[in-house]
Design a binder for these strands. Structure first.
Lengths: 216, 216, 216, 216
DNA sequence: TATGAATGAGGCTTCATTCAT
DNA sequence: AATGAATGAAGCCTCATTCAT
């Protein structure tokens, strides 16, 4: 019989980073599931190995926890895009890859999209208090600016493309696919949310994105 | 003794429909502003000429009220589109008009869009209880089916266009423009939300919609 | 067997003033006993016929309740003095009566004095928010001003007496007798707090007050 | 290697008395500012160079810390009076000096007075547990007894003066001046709390004290 | 001797809802 | 049809205190 066997309730003993990460992970799920006001601190703690008090110890209050959850969500969203290495591809191919990847990535991480939607319900007030999030997001725009410049230079892109509008369009497509799925599928059926339907939508997005920039 | 003698505080006396309409209008604003869980019954009643008991009298509970608010929102959204009289125009022009109109209409009625977004946060559970909403929404799809048929017949539309996908795309564009404005504009600036920016986005939508259907 | 027999838990049915008065009376005791921070809302409600929710319904929060308790305490303190009818007596007699009465009145209402002491611990911040209390307290000063004027006119008072200083002195004597009784009697014994001791102190106060004003 | 090498953050290392004195000094301010229940252990520790555990290590708990703070306050109050060397002066002059000094000393050390007032709010329960405080305070009474005896012997004091009553009166005057300043000045203005006003009050106290003992 | 991490108990407050008239 | 009074349940948060190192 080994000693100190199994997971006791107090299994995070003296492991601040572990505790914080545990809380953040669970809170991400609960906030994404129920929204800010709908989420219950007790529900978050119930799914955690820690005690309720630790939320206040590390995050101050419910709002503070939510703000950190939101930051983490943005960080991981942009982190994905950062790893695409778009510079290695010809501009049109790079754009196609970015659009398709963004579509898939949003689809695979619906919680982050839901958190952003929730944040919009609250008029972005937590986002406005964050200092880290804005920094993260400027990357995507500069990346698209590079892409457009390269495309113009090699003659494949028109010279009047607005990188911001391009980003807006891709985002609209990928975000709506997650954020409005419940009502859309209920009203119009599941066809577009089957694997086949999603592939068609992704193909549509790629087509649209390329059409936006391609020389006619 | 004249009738309608001045506006008293209790001016809804003996006017059930007026009371209900008043509550619904206020509740629409409050729910759209704060979400379902974030909205307060007291806040709704405060902005109303009625007393709190009336909400329970006419709508059962908070959920019931919200469901009716949501129904009204959907009704008015579709009502707008119904008045377009698309049959009178050639298919391409009709589609362009529909897309542009939808963009503007969403922009002019952000509360309804927010309510739909909120409903999605709650996994569409109120929508599923409604009997009237699904009926309303089938119109738009049959309208697009008509449009596509006419387009194919007169040779302006390709014959593989999916009306549902068309609707999805237009919706994505128009809904995202409202639902994610707070975070998008905070992170990337207001450029796309000025009048000029919005005109560019609307033009983009029209171009995209026509590209989706046009024979190449 | 009579119907509706005895006091049920819900005995304040539809009697707002009764509920408010009940809460105020109990809260006065509890705050006076334990101070503001030390007082427990639950303890207040336990001694009440009402439910906890009513405190928030009628008084907003703990601070609001305390502020109203303080107002009531000041009101009753000054109310006592107001009924003395000092104008009917020759100035010196009137002053003697006022001093003796104040001493007794404070002694008979230690809760009010404790509340004022507690308020001082909190730097008078609730008092500063009250609009009614300052009005109440100006009476006592104008009363003393009248008294001094009459005394100067009939030659019994010196003409350099400051009514405010007179009030301050009487207050110091009467308040200290209550507010510091616990520590003083523990350190120096109970002699001055027996009935005989208190009579000596009251006599001392009267002597002092008269000495302050009397022509030498 | 020099000793006492610079001021590090952890400058109390290995200096138990320093740690205790630091905690006591800070706790005195915090308790005096907010009362016993209103004071926060975290606030005390925040203003300290030490860690929270030390409070429990040296003082047991919040009550224990408060008791020691109170003891220190009484000690320093009486310490002042002890240095007056009243025996060197004729009785009347000695009394005048004692009264004036007490007035000034209270005024210069409002924190100690506030602590005593706070202790009274709590019905003197910490004081009752102290063994050292009663010893300190007997001095002042024996001092006054000496004074009165000398006064009677040299014919300047009446022979029916109660030293305890004398002490009570001086205390009432000096304590009230601090303990009720917030409410009194808010209700009746600052006149008596300016330097000029305070001088008048001090002169008043001296007059009163002498009147209490002087042969008529 | 000293510390940062962790906590159970209990505090205040808010919420949607029902009652009595 | 309509209202102000009243509430139980549950929410968020804070406190003094102890644990593990």
């Amino acid at each position: 019989m080994k000693r100190n066997e199994g997971e006791r309730k107090t299994s995070w003993k003296q492991d601040p980073e572990g505790v914080k990460a545990d809380i953040l992970a669970v809170a991400t799920s609960v906030f994404a599931e129920s929204g800010f006001s709908g989420a219950r601190i007790d529900e978050i703690i119930r799914r955690t190995k820690t005690s309720k008090r630790m939320i206040y110890y590390y995050f101050g209050d419910k709002s503070g926890l939510y703000a950190r959850v939101l930051e983490a969500a943005y960080a991981r969203l942009r982190q994905g895009e950062g790893q695409l290495d778009l510079q290695a591809l010809p501009p049109l191919e790079a754009l196609a890859k970015l659009a398709a990847f963004t579509f898939d990535f949003h689809r695979e991480n619906p919680e982050y999209i839901r958190l952003i939607t929730i944040e919009n319900i609250h008029h972005g007030k937590h986002l406005k208090q964050s200092e880290t999030i804005p920094k993260l997001n400027s990357q995507i725009i500069t990346g698209l600016e590079d892409l457009c410049r390269r495309g113009v230079e090699d003659g494949t892109f028109r010279d009047d493309v607005d990188p911001l509008e391009l980003h807006w369009t891709i985002s609209a497509f990928c975000v709506f696919n997650i954020s409005n799925r419940a009502t859309f599928s209920h009203l119009y059926g599941d066809d577009l949310f089957t694997d086949a339907g999603q592939e068609r939508l992704r193909a549509r997005l790629v087509t649209m994105a390329l059409d936006m920039v391609r020389v006619r």
